[in-house]
Amino acid sequence: MAKTILIVDDSSSMRQLVKMTLTGAGHQVIEAVDGRDALAKLTGQKVNLIISDVNMPNLDGIGLVKALKARPEYKFTPIVMLTTESEQSKKAEGQAAGARAWIVKPFQPAQLLSAVDKLVS
């Protein structure tokens, strides 16, 4: 079943990769360039899943998770964090904020799809 997924990343090539992968699987994708942009784009419409980079300008991934958990209409929305190996220390911080699923970059498109399916199929 088609899902609405928000992808938050400051790298446009990464957004493109994720978007292509997800739309190819039939999902609807909303793009945001950083945490602040994401919060601005989330104006009450239903989103099934949020995929977010950790390291971003303005509002980083962890700040975004904290902000989302505070908003009743998004507090139960699953969030997948995209991290690199060097950001493992951020994981504990992200977990404390409420991020539950992690994908380590670089990843294969299939990996991303299977994570999405595990969470919202």
């Binding site: 139960f76 699953p78 409420g98 539950r100 595990k118 969470l119 919202v120 199929s121």
Partner: peptide, 17 residues
């Protein structure tokens, strides 16, 4: 589990694959 945004049904569907 549910409060953290997880839906067991999703895992069951995935398992079906």
């Amino acid at each position: 589990l549910l409060r953290n945004g997880f839906d067991p049904a999703a895992f069951v569907r995935y398992l079906g694959r």
